Structures are given as C-alpha cells and as structure tokens.
Computed example of a mutant assay.
Amino acid sequence: MLRQSLLQGTSRHCHVTAKYVLSLLLFVNFISPHSTASAHQVKTTRDVGAILHIEPNDNPRAGERTKAWFALTRKGGKVIRLAECNCQLQVYAEPHASGEPPLLEPALQALTAERYQGVPGTEITFPRQGNYQLQLRGKPKTGASFKPFELKFNVTVAAGNEVSENVQGTQDVNQNFTQARTSGLPFWAIASFGLIIVGVFLAVVQQLNRE
C-alpha cells in the first residue's frame, strides 16, 4: 500500500511538473515576438539617460529612410529637450577603430513622439546590411544643469535595397567586354581571317615538301 501510494504521488507530481513546464513554454513563445519587436535600447551615464527608438519596430533596413529619436532625460526623469542640449549624432559601421571618422553625421531635429516633446531625432539611411554604432554626445546649453555625456547604441540593420559593389563591378566588366567587341572587328571576320592564314601556311608547307 505504501509503495502504491508513493508511486501514485510521484506520478501526480510528474504530471503537474509536465503541465507547468508546458505552460511556461507556451507563455514564453507567446510573449517573445512582442517583447522582441517592442524592445528599446537604454543607455545611462551618472546623471543622463536615453532610450533609442527606431521606427518601425526597431528593425531598420538597408537603403531605407529610418526615423530614430532619443528619449533623453536627466537624473530624476526630467526630459532634456534638444533646445537645452548641444547634441551631436555620429554613425559608425562596425567594427570601427578609435579615431576613425564617422560614416554618417545626420543633423538632429527636435521631435515630439509619444509623451516626449522636443527630444533629439533624425532620419538615417543605412547604406548596407550589418552592424552599426550610434554615438550620441551632448553638452548643456546655458541654463541647463546636466553634465556632458556620451551614449553608444548598437544597431543591427537588416537586408534591404543596398547596392552590392561586387554586382556593380561585374556589370561594368561585362559592359567593357561588350564595348570592346563592338568597337573592333566582328568575331566572324576575325575567325575567317585566321582560317585563311592557316590555309596559306599549310599550302606553303605542302609546296616545300614536294620540292
């Protein structure tokens, strides 16, 4: 009896555990797409923080205009507007070396998005698929009370309408080859001329052998 009770208890425990694990997996699968699509990058310094928003859905594509803006706040949650900040945005293709000039330096504009008013934002066109780094630097204008800051955000750009240099190079080579053929003698004329030379050479050889 005791053994049977233990077996029944173990069976019920395993059944409950299996149901719990299955429910947990279903829950994770349900929330994962939503959490991935709505995830924003948060970076902070000692007294300044920012959330990077990239539209749409934080999923930029190469060759397409991408709207990016920064929910910039100081310690305590007060919004830092672009009018209060000498802000500069630089875009680097990853990996990049220290001191390397930025790939892009898009001008910042004051944008109003969601509950944030006048925050720095811009439009970026990433030229190719791959990894990039956005560096936002800022200094307070007169009357502002935050300290200078530098925030770095890593961005992955999906494939889009980028132009492949290899494809373009192949097209140029083919075009040059075609132009070379059309600018000179036709191929059939060159082949006929070669056959005539070979025929004359063979005739000369035969004549010499007879003599």
Rank of each mutant, 00 (worst) to 15 (best):
L2K: 15
R3C: 10
Q4F: 11
Q4P: 03
L6R: 09
L7S: 13
Q8E: 14
G9H: 03
S11P: 00
H13A: 08
V16P: 01
A18Y: 10
K19C: 15
K19Q: 15
L26M: 12
V28Q: 07
F30T: 14
I31E: 12
I31T: 15
A37P: 04
A37E: 09
S38L: 13
S38V: 12
V42T: 12
R46A: 05
L52V: 08
I54K: 03
E55I: 02
P56Y: 02
N57G: 05
N57W: 03
N57F: 12
P60S: 02
A62I: 02
F70C: 04
L72A: 02
K78L: 13
R81K: 15
A83E: 15
C85K: 02
C85L: 08
N86F: 05
Q88F: 01
Q88N: 05
L89M: 11
H96T: 04
H96V: 02
S98A: 15
G99H: 08
E100C: 03
E100Y: 05
P101Q: 01
L104D: 05
P106Y: 01
A110Q: 07
A113D: 14
A113I: 09
E114L: 12
R115C: 05
R115P: 04
T122A: 07
R128F: 10
Q129P: 03
G130C: 06
Q133S: 07
Q135F: 00
L136N: 01
P140K: 03
T142C: 06
T142M: 10
G143A: 09
A144H: 02
A144M: 07
S145V: 13
K147C: 04
F149Q: 01
F149N: 00
E150V: 00
N154V: 03
N154K: 12
T156Q: 11
T156I: 03
S164A: 13
V167A: 13
Q168S: 12
G169F: 06
V173W: 02
Q175K: 14
Q175V: 02
T178D: 13
Q179D: 12
A180E: 10
A180W: 10
T182P: 03
P186Q: 12
F187A: 14
I190K: 02
A191V: 11
F193C: 11
I197D: 02
V198R: 10
V198A: 14
V198N: 11
G199N: 12
F201K: 10
L202P: 01
V205Q: 14
N209Q: 14
